[in-house]
Design a protein around this nucleic acid. Structure first.
Lengths: 343, 343
DNA sequence: TTGTAAGCGTTATCAA
DNA sequence: TTGATAACGCTTACAA
């Protein structure tokens, strides 16, 4: 250990014959301290090798300069990009990022909210676990006025900040794209409950696009998957392509499902896009590798992360206990690739 | 705020007519406290809704129960899986995980080591930035006896814990696999300096495998890329396939490069694997999506993360200022897929 | 513009 | 087995 030479503001104060409070203020450019003193303090701090002790500051101010991030997992491309965006924005403002994974388990999510609370994080960014059906465990952040931002998988009927895309519009656009390619019988895969809303919203967009164009809305074309995996995707698509009236288009609400639709179709001798047009969701790396390349919907992960972090940072700065809960709607676009190009 | 009802050990002490020190000890099952008292304290703590304040504990003990993780980026599949492994192991032991991205910049890495130090993290897990050529900025962890584990991209000649695969063996195995498929002219892509060692080691394995089998070692078959991107991979492979003596095999030390080798070959009318066998590295998701599927080398990311975290945890527990710097070598395997199957 | 002094909630050192 | 008390390094009223 080299604790013996850990320099504190007390040491600086002694050396400069000033009070610790003056040092503390000078170091943070407090306006009541003269420029001369500030310069002098900073210079000697530098010379003495002073390093602030965030722990002490946090204890005193009851706020650690940290943002807690609670996600189902961090290995999905969308989520790791999200974290990246958060980390960049947080770092710039001098905040650190603590990450926790719920692994889509409700119980873990509940436990981790408590842990984050214990850590006295300044703010929390969360995307809900697939299992979660209520948001009661987030109440403690509200009660403690700790800014809370939900991203992507957001709870229904819980009043907080949220950063999302308009999943309804995105689903609508995706379906409309298939319609524009001449598809008449469009299938859809879906997952999740109404609580996490995003897949439900995408489905709403899908249904409304069909209705708007007077296209058949048929329950047998909407298949529910248990989880977003290649196996589940294959299972669902096999079922669809075994129908006597095969669909001629599929809107998959995730690229893993979209890719497995292409793979399954190829395996079954169904030509993509000629006989089956496919569009996915997210613009994951795999969508550009599959042959034919998968058309998809952009999901601006890094931007959403930055937006979420900035909302927290602003909320912390303005201190106004605003009851206006900001909703950031980020834009999405259709990316047209070979898997849906029929014209 | 509901600070007014924040319960502290002081409140518990008052209620039970005990000293705060007793409460503190009881809560941690200290052996000098009677079982009866421990039970009583825990029960009332529970009842009163007591939540420990890590910040205060950290300040006092000069150690925050946190592990700092410093990586080039978190969006690469290998690295996000690594973090996942770290998070799981750390969480189990009651430690939190703070992540920082160097974005492969040396300067950022230097700054972030200081930040991590300021945070009083209990330990640090790091994978070096591509730019980094010396490890001087990690010295402060050594001096403070903060356990430091390097993973994957480890520094040369800096004595600390490290969790790695044997990149030499892996490169050797990959090349040998191509040789077993009947390849006679095997090319290799490489990157990075000798400091970060991993790519250099893979290349050594490649060269030794060739030599062992009396196969041609030709400089024109070793192409250096500037970064691991599809564009750089395409550029390098285009060059290789334009030689009058085209290679009949490529060992790419990363799946992105391997995938772009396949794509480029296909585009140039070179058949994979018949005319060109390809093997990548990492077993990223894209390797199973590309057609033909990319043979590759496993890189046990999550396990490496867990191993790294556990080394730190053990080091913290045993407190022995051990100078034996553990090296964990994890196993790798060749995964044979279509891109190299010629027999 | 600067100083005084009281905490923040623990842990650790003695002493009992 | 338990208690009293002094830190840990900083922030922040309030005073000067």
């Amino acid at each position: 250990m080299k604790d013996y030479n850990e320099v504190t503001i007390y040491d600086i104060a002694e050396k400069l014959n000033l009070a610790t409070s003056t040092i503390s203020r000078a170091l943070k450019d407090h306006h009541t301290i003269s420029k001369k003193t500030i310069a002098k303090v900073k210079k000697t701090a530098q010379e003495m090798g002073y390093r602030p002790n965030n722990l002490a500051a946090s204890l005193r101010s009851k706020k650690s300069k940290a943002i807690g991030v609670l996600l189902p997992t961090i290995t999905q491309p969308f989520l790791s990009s999200l974290i990246s965006g958060i980390e960049i924005a947080a770092r710039k403002a001098g905040y650190s990022v603590i990450i926790m994974q719920s692994h889509d388990k409700h119980k873990d999510e509940v436990d981790l909210t408590k842990l984050l609370y214990d850590h006295r994080v300044s703010g929390v960014i969360c995307s809900l676990a697939m299992e979660t059906e209520d948001a009661a465990h987030f109440q403690l952040f509200k009660e403690s006025a700790i800014p809370l931002v939900f991203v992507d998988r957001v709870p229904k009927g819980f009043n907080t900040y949220r950063v999302v895309i308009d999943n309804y519009i995105a689903g609508y656009k995706a379906t409309k794209h298939l319609i524009a390619q001449g598809c008449k019988h469009i299938a859809h895969l879906t997952i999740g409950s109404e609580f996490g809303t995003i897949y439900h919203e995408r489905k709403r967009g899908y249904l409304d696009a069909l209705k708007e164009h007077n296209l058949e809305v048929d329950d047998k074309y909407v298949i529910r998957v248990k989880e977003i995996t290649y196996d589940e995707g294959a299972r669902a698509v096999k079922k669809l392509l075994s129908l006597k009236n095969k669909p001629d288009g599929i809107f998959a609400p995730g690229d893993i499902l979209g890719v497995s639709a292409i793979q399954t179709a190829k395996k079954m001798g169904v030509k993509v896009p000629e006989e089956l047009a496919v569009i996915g969701f997210n613009d994951d790396p795999i969508s550009r590798i599959i042959d034919p390349n998968l058309s998809t919907i952009t999901h601006p992960a890094e931007k959403m992360g930055q937006a979420a972090a900035e909302i927290i940072l602003n909320s912390l700065k303005s201190k106004t206990k605003d009851d206006i809960r900001e909703i950031a709607f980020l834009n999405t676009e259709v990316i047209e690739r070979e898997s849906s190009k029929r014209n």
